[in-house]
């Protein structure tokens, strides 16, 4: 049963990741990424990390990919055109390179044999154990990651803002001539 579930979701993950990488429309690629993330979440649960599986769906599929979709629609990205002739050779190099990479990894593991996974202990799966370790042994990384997220929020807000004194008047602050006009109008009224 477990093998069956693994094979289905592994195949789904591979097929959808191929679609992510090869499809020309960015929206389709993003939705295939959701399918990939879902399959990987199921594999996490199979490996005895249900908390990480739920987090994967909550953070990755539920927030990060939505952000991707937002940006794609905001920038109104169209389907990619055909690759220009000069770049088509890149694919012929990249794919054999990737296959060699997989081959090397596979070779390592076929040599070592295929060690079975240890049985799932309740201790490994337990949420309490994970949380305890997070707040005792790994407290410093936890706090640093919190700081990192704060920095990322501030940085993203600043990076995506329009400049306040944009020449086309599209900034959040009103243009000086408009302010002067309004002030003059208000003063003219008794």
């Amino acid at each position: 049963m477990e093998t069956f579930i693994f094979l289905i979701f592994a195949a789904l993950a591979v097929v959808s990741s191929l679609v992510v990488v090869m499809h020309r429309s960015p929206v389709y690629a993003t939705m295939s990424l959701v399918v990939t993330l879902f399959s990987v979440a199921v594999l996490f649960v199979l490996l005895g990390a249900p908390f990480l599986g739920a987090l994967q769906i909550l953070i990755y599929a539920g927030a990060i990919v939505v952000l991707f979709l937002f940006v794609i629609m905001l920038l109104n990205l169209q389907k990619e055109g055909e690759a220009a002739g000069r770049w088509r050779g890149q694919l012929w190099v990249a794919i054999p390179g990737a296959l060699i990479f997989i081959g090397m990894v596979g070779l390592v593991f076929w040599r070592q044999g295929a060690p079975d996974l240890q049985p799932l202990t309740p201790d490994l799966v337990s949420l309490k154990g994970l949380a305890t370790a997070l707040f005792t042994d790994y407290l410093l990384p936890f706090e640093i990651v919190g700081l990192l997220l704060l920095v990322a929020v501030i940085g993203a807000t600043v990076a995506a803002r329009r400049a306040p004194d944009a020449a086309d008047g599209s900034g959040p602050l009103p243009r000086e001539d408009f302010v002067a006009e309004e002030t003059a109008r208000k003063e003219a009224r008794p």
Partner: peptide
Amino acid sequence: MSSVPISWYLMLAALLFAIGTVGALT
């Protein structure tokens, strides 16, 4: 004992990584 050996998971991860690399490069 789990019926899925760890090497399957690792090969799947390597495959996904390789596909991602191809995508990032092309």
